[in-house]
Computed example of a mutant assay.
Amino acid sequence: MTKVLVVLTNTTRYQHTDEPTGLWLGEAAEFVDAMQQANIAVDYVSPKGGFVPLDPRSMKYTNPAIMKIYEDHDFQERALTASLRPEQVNPAEYDAIYFTGGHGVMWDFPDNQALQAIALAIYQHQGYVTSVCHGVAGLLNIKDQAGQYLIAGKKITGFTHAEEILAGKQKVVPFLNKTVANKHNAHFVQKRAYKSFAVQDGQLITGQNPFSVKALTDLLVPQLKH
């Protein structure tokens, strides 16, 4: 059975503020909807396991497909209430890993060595390492056994500086995705702010922003079906 591991955040607020954040609902729900349509199974993991908060702003950007997944008992239970802990995951079971976004991931994805090990194991077994929007934070610091960054020399994308400015969050985020990506010798590419855009470079597939999930799944699903 083809299966994808979906990675979610446990972060409930922007650090050092009282403003809530969390998973950007559509970035998980639209992806899961695409996997269901392609008859591809999914599991859910988060850095701590268990509860996954939603970024309240993401509820303004729903559609019938997103709401269908959100209201599904399986998603509510396995994704939002009882997500797996990294130590419960066997990477050999998965053909791809997908790092979702929402600003929360910028605090609990980048330095999580357990998630990095899972992603690297999937990659080394010819699986796909994918992300959308801020989810690229989960890719930025992955290193192989030789100590080389997985993204070095690869084209990737993610939420941009311009999009942070438009979102009003450039002063509260701990880093900018492009800055770290370039520091780690990736080729960060982007389109106009909030325009759908995804890029594939070998086994890495990344989407720029919340509106790029379909562009990403349009690249990923044929690879998994193949």
Rank of each mutant, 00 (worst) to 15 (best):
H184Q: 11
D111N: 09
K169I: 15
A82F: 13
A215N: 10
Y149I: 02
V7F: 08
G138R: 07
H184D: 05
V42Q: 08
E19S: 14
D218H: 06
F99S: 00
G135S: 01
L140F: 06
Q113V: 04
V189H: 09
S58L: 01
F109G: 02
P222Q: 05
M106K: 03
T100K: 08
A121L: 04
R192I: 12
A29C: 13
H184A: 07
Q208R: 05
M106P: 03
T217E: 02
A114H: 05
R78D: 13
L220I: 04
I151Y: 01
L54Y: 06
S83G: 10
D144E: 01
H226S: 15
V172Y: 07
G101T: 03
A121R: 01
V199L: 09
A137S: 13
E77Y: 14
F99P: 01
H125P: 03
G153F: 01
Q37M: 09
N90T: 05
A92L: 07
Y194Q: 01
A186W: 09
I97V: 15
M59G: 01
Q116S: 10
S46A: 12
K155E: 11
E27Y: 02
L150Q: 01
V189N: 09
T17P: 00
Y149W: 09
Y128W: 11
V221K: 09
T100F: 01
H16W: 11
F211N: 11
N90D: 13
G104D: 06
V132Y: 10
K183I: 07
H125C: 02
Q15H: 14
S83H: 08
G104P: 06
F99K: 01
L139F: 02
Q76D: 03
H184E: 02
D55F: 02
W24Q: 05
P20R: 09
L54M: 13
P174E: 09
A162Q: 14
F211A: 10
T9W: 06
V189Y: 05
S46I: 03
F188A: 12
L224R: 10
P47S: 07
F175C: 03
D218I: 03
N90I: 02
A193W: 07
I66N: 07
L219Q: 12
Y98Q: 07
K183Q: 15
T157D: 04
L219M: 05
F211R: 12
G135N: 02
Q88K: 08
E30Q: 14
T179G: 04
S131Y: 05
I142V: 04
P56E: 12
I118P: 00
